[in-house]
Computed example of a mutant assay.
Amino acid sequence: MSLRFASLGSGSKGNGTLVATADSCVLVDCGFTLKETRRRLERLGVAPEQLSAILVTHEHSDHIKGVLPLAKKYELPVFTSFGTAEYGEMRSTPWWRCLSPGDSEEIAGIDIQAVPVPHDAREPCQFVFRHRSRSLGLLTDLGSVTPVVRQHYAECDALVLECNHDVPMLEAGPYPPSLKRRVGGDWGHLNNGQAASLLSSCEIERLQHLVMAHLSEQNNTPALARSAIEPHMQSSEALLSADQEAGFDWLEIA
């Protein structure tokens, strides 16, 4: 087995992504209560005791809320940037390990690259995972696509990509003006068009799976996201969307 991945859930109510090999399983983010995390892990056939480590992208509650309870309960190492570790008592716990944006490290037998991204958090990053010549890119919670992002995500065999909002839906939607500016700004979240533009610098022929993630329940639909992304794909069969409740089931990189 090379790499496989699955989602506990994706959206503003909670996020968590599993990345696994034959020998290890890491959890990226945990925005759920301990009880809910266990329920969602069980749905994917994973016991908390099987986790090797937790990685955290940034300190917003829908990504970090359940991290410390899970780490304490099962004595799991937690890798975050120094800025992210300002959350709660993270830095003073015996489980915290620093993984700075721009750094790479082997964790549980997986080579992990931390990629700095523009988002309104203390020191956010996203991750590219490599194992046995295969790579998985996880890219959500950023407001713009930078040259650094394009560089690191150009050669992925699978990609979990934020398609947070449709611009007309956001503009006409119920959010107050300040929140609309935050979500749609350079330090907010990717819209469907921005997500599609990233694919122009990717080796599309390599992509076995592209998962549209972190879709706003108020400002986007899977159909709108698909209509923006699908024209850039070689095969529409490789394209699916992550759900807030169901996440998505295991996908394997051949």
Rank of each mutant, 00 (worst) to 15 (best):
R4I: 11
F5P: 13
S10G: 04
S10M: 07
S10C: 06
A20L: 02
S24Q: 08
C25Y: 01
C25D: 08
V26S: 01
L27V: 04
D29Q: 07
F32K: 04
T33D: 03
L34T: 03
E36D: 07
R40C: 07
G45Q: 08
P48D: 02
E49N: 09
Q50E: 03
L51H: 00
S52F: 01
S52L: 04
H58V: 02
H60P: 03
H60S: 05
V67F: 00
L68E: 04
L70E: 07
F82Q: 14
G83N: 07
G88P: 07
M90D: 10
A108M: 06
I110S: 13
D111N: 15
I112R: 01
V115Q: 15
P116E: 14
P118R: 15
R122V: 15
R122M: 15
E123T: 11
Q126M: 01
R130L: 10
S133P: 07
L136P: 00
T146R: 00
P147G: 12
H152D: 12
Y153Q: 12
Y153M: 15
C163I: 11
L170Y: 11
K180E: 13
V183W: 12
G188W: 10
N192K: 11
Q194A: 05
A196C: 05
C202A: 09
I204A: 06
A213R: 10
A213H: 08
L215P: 06
N219A: 09
P222M: 03
S227C: 08
H232C: 06
M233H: 00
L239E: 02
S241E: 04
D243Q: 04
E245L: 03
F248D: 07
I253H: 03
